[in-house]
Structures are given as C-alpha cells and as structure tokens.
C-alpha cells in the first residue's frame, strides 16, 4: 500500500516524541498531597488532572507546579504565573503520547497566559479538518499534529494531554 497518507499523519517528529516521551515520569507519580507539600516548600502550587479517552482507554495524568512570578505581576496575576514544572504519566497510542511529550516541551517555562494561547491555537488547528495550515513559528513541534486534523477520530488522542493540562490549570 501507499504510505503517504500514513506518513502525513505519523510525521517523524510524532514518532520520535512517542518514543522519547519528554517529561514523562518512568515511575508512578508520588501521592498528590505529598508532592504538593514538597512543591509548596519550593514556592510552587501543584495541580494535576487525569484524563481518559473512553474510546480506546488511553490515559494520561498531567501534574504541574505553577510559580507566581512577582516580577511579572503587571496585570492578571494568574496569567503571569509561570509553569515551572510539568511531569506526566500515561499509556496510549503514539499520537497521544507524542502529544503529551510536545506539551511538556511547549509549556514548561511559559506563563499561564502564553500556554493558554498556545492551547487555543493547537485546538483550533486540530479541529480544522485540515483547513488550517499549522504555523511552526507559533506551534513549534506541535505543528507536526497538523495531519491529525484530517482524522477527526484521532483529534481526541492529540488533545488528551492538553485537555489534562487545561483542567489542571483550572485545578483546585
């Protein structure tokens, strides 16, 4: 068979991220309360979300430490907080795992407002059914998921970790 369609979907960047899984914890994450106390001592607010794709059972937990940055408190205090730490753990297809890996690379060190803007752009591209040409300048490695938008059944896979991230941002 011709593999061009498959190569469009599974770009090398995706296959590489699916293998290397940046930011993934090799072990079970320590209990949240325990980790939160330790993070607190480092001046971080710890928050997490666990998401499951019920279609296939893929799952991912995103846990992150957010630091309120006094130097950048020039407006929306929440928006200026910095995502200082992010660790995830999951099990799933190459697209969901690669997407979690890219999320980790993309949002660590950015402000909450910047990461929200990236999330919106990423989601808009994925929902476009191939009509939006991804902007690599903005999306970086996340642009590699442009092919996924032509496969509506796989959009959930690509969004899984990002939805967890979004829920964690709203977290307790």
């Amino acid at each position: 068979m011709t593999n061009s369609a498959m190569q469009q979907l599974y770009q090398q960047i995706i296959l590489d991220h699916a293998k290397s899984r940046h930011g993934a914890s090799p072990d079970e994450l320590p209990p949240l309360a325990e980790a939160a106390a330790a993070a607190d001592a480092r001046g971080l607010h710890l928050t997490e979300s666990h998401q499951v794709n019920t279609t296939c059972g893929d799952e991912v937990t995103v846990r992150m430490g957010v630091r309120a940055d006094p130097d950048r408190a020039d407006g929306d205090a929440d928006g200026d907080a910095v995502i200082d730490e992010l660790v995830w753990r999951g099990d799933g297809c190459s697209i969901s795992m690669a997407s979690a890996s890219v999320l980790s690379d993309s949002v660590r060190g950015t402000t909450v407002a910047e990461s929200r803007a990236l999330l919106d752009t990423f989601r808009e591209m994925l929902r476009s059914r191939g009509t939006i040409e991804p902007d690599e300048e903005v999306l970086g490695d996340a642009a590699a998921f442009g092919g996924v938008s032509r496969y509506p059944a796989r959009v959930k896979c690509a969004m899984l970790a990002w939805v967890a991230f979004e829920a964690a941002l709203l977290g307790p």
């Binding site: 498959m6 799933g92 297809c93 969901s96 496969y151």
Partner: peptide, 12 residues
C-alpha cells in the same frame, strides 16, 4: 505499537 496506531494503519 499501540492498538490505536495498528487500527489506523489497517484502516488506511
């Protein structure tokens, strides 16, 4: 290879 990826390849 995750089952979802196997299924995607076969579907193609």
């Amino acid at each position: 290879v995750h089952a979802h990826d196997v299924g995607q390849y076969l579907d193609e």
